[in-house]
Amino acid sequence: MENLSDMRKNSLVSGGSSAFNTYMGTGIVNDNINSRAELDELLVRVGRYKDKSAFASLFSYFAPRIKSFLLRLGTDMSTAEELAQEAMIMVWRRAETFDPAQAGASTWIFTIARNKRIDRLRKDGRPLPDMLDPAMMPDQPETGLEAVNRTQEEDKLRVAMKKLPEEQAKMIFAAYYEEKSHREISEESGLPLGTVKSRIRLALSRLRANLDEHER
């Protein structure tokens, strides 16, 4: 439980700018992974060749992050461990359907982790839609250039994320990781609700603007 409380302490809402800096920009350099393209390549190898060593590399990069992500959402330690393992099993089983032209490995695996968590929380057992299905993605790939475009799109989003004023970025983090209602964010941060809302609004519209720019 120590880890969890540490993480809560570092909560982006209550934490200072150092917490923010910790969260952006450290994602790739460690774990012997040199680039996001390498993550995509590993996942492709798992899908095509059932490559166990590629899977082991993916596991060492993603499983601890999925666990961390789930802990941030308030999942208890043993459930987070279990779900991280289940998500990775799903990664293996579904890897054949991974198409780097449609989504990066991180987006694809985020989707699996998100669904695993919802499955666990939900009592009704509603089957989740297959968001990994290519049909889910509005733009169908036509050429080999699509993967390049997709990568550029994600890189732009990363840049846009880093360019966001810190107070806006914090709100976005909180909305995802901590599943906080805007009211909760407001109470914890001591900011008026209107400020919280306008920051999320601004952040989203900036990111959207980035997306539109990409189209031109």
Binding site: N3, M7, T22, Y23, M24, G25, T26, G27, I28, N30, D31, R36, F62, A63, P64, R65, I66, K67, S68, F69, L71, R72, A80, E81, A84, Q85, A103, G104, A105, S106, T107, W108, I109, F110, T111, A113, R114, M131, E153, E154, L157, R158, M161, I172, F173, Y176, Y177, L207, R208, L211
Partner: peptide
């Protein structure tokens, strides 16, 4: 875009060992 953002945030999570 929002799912991509989720992927980016996943990358940014501080790893917690299994």
């Amino acid at each position: 875009m929002l799912m991509q953002l989720g992927g980016i945030l996943l990358e940014e999570c501080e790893p917690v060992s299994l």
